[in-house]
């Protein structure tokens, strides 16, 4: 099963340092890891740095990854609404990068499978521009999954989805990672989703790691106060699950 460790990882945009000294323990495949933090904390930059899309100091250690760094797939927030392409073509596009023009039946079967799994096969021949933000987000997930990544970095994949779809997608990703051994890091703003679906959590604040570890140990009233500047409690709901209850801002 693939695993990932970050050692003193940083990132710069020009002379500006946007991420520094990010260290994590072993991030194992087979489960979800939440990456949380305020806006502009450096979550997207961290993902880009792990995926090798931006440079900086430090090392990303990857273990037991059959594809090596090529197996790392970053799923950005930007979903390209202007392209005159159908959903099917946009997923094919992801699968075919670096290969020839000819499209084999097996490749199309893979696209059918992914669209079917995400329950968006009915959107397959609609133009990207006709889709809602949430539908485009599901297409973006399909584009990532069709590449069969070993490490998947999802940048706010549920931000435009309705509540039902958020739960559906996160539950699906959890089952998928458990079954395939894929390591999934998800940038989330909904801390209750992190508590419910993610085994581990990394808190990024001001370009560095504010806390990391098991999710229920990381998301605490103290962390919410110091990182998010909100007065909040973490309590068990009637079903025994931990939930964040916000009382107000500081």
């Amino acid at each position: 099963m693939v695993s990932l460790t970050l050692e003193k990882v940083g990132a710069n945009y020009g002379r500006r340092t946007v991420l520094s000294d990010v260290n994590t323990g072993l991030l194992r495949g087979g489960g979800l890891t939440a990456v949380i933090g305020p806006n502009a904390a450096g979550k997207s930059t961290l993902f880009k740095r792990i995926a090798g899309l931006t440079s900086g100091p430090g090392t990303v250690h990857l273990s037991d990854a059959a594809k090596g760094p090529e197996g790392i797939c970053y799923m950005p927030q930007d979903t390209g609404a202007n392209a005159v392409l159908t959903v099917y073509e946009s997923v094919l596009l992801s699968a075919k990068q670096g290969s020839g023009w000819k499209v084999k039946d097996g490749e199309l079967a893979e696209i059918d499978r992914v669209l079917g799994e995400l329950r968006i096969a009915d959107l397959a021949f609609r133009d990207l521009g006709e889709l809602s933000g949430g539908q485009r987000q599901l297409v973006s997930i399909a584009q990532a999954l069709v590449r069969r990544p070993e490490v998947l970095l999802m940048d706010e994949p549920t931000s435009a989805l309705d509540l039902f779809r958020q739960i559906e997608v996160l539950g699906f990703m959890k089952r998928l990672s458990a079954q395939s051994g894929m390591a999934v890091l998800i940038a989330l703003h909904d801390l209750n989703h992190a508590l419910r679906y993610c085994d581990d959590t990394i808190v990024i604040s001001g370009g560095s790691v504010a806390a990391s570890g098991r999710t229920h140990e990381v998301i605490t009233a103290d962390m919410l106060r110091s990182v998010y500047r909100v007065e909040a409690r973490v309590e068990a709901c009637s079903m025994g699950r931990p939930v964040v209850i916000v009382d107000g801002s500081l």
Binding site: D105, I111, D112, A121
Partner: peptide
């Protein structure tokens, strides 16, 4: 990987429509 969100949709139609 064979994990579906819920009811899996048949993909054969997609392949044919793309070829068309």
């Amino acid at each position: 990987m064979m994990v579906a969100m819920t009811d899996q949709v048949s993909g054969i139609e997609g392949r044919g429509r793309y070829r068309a």
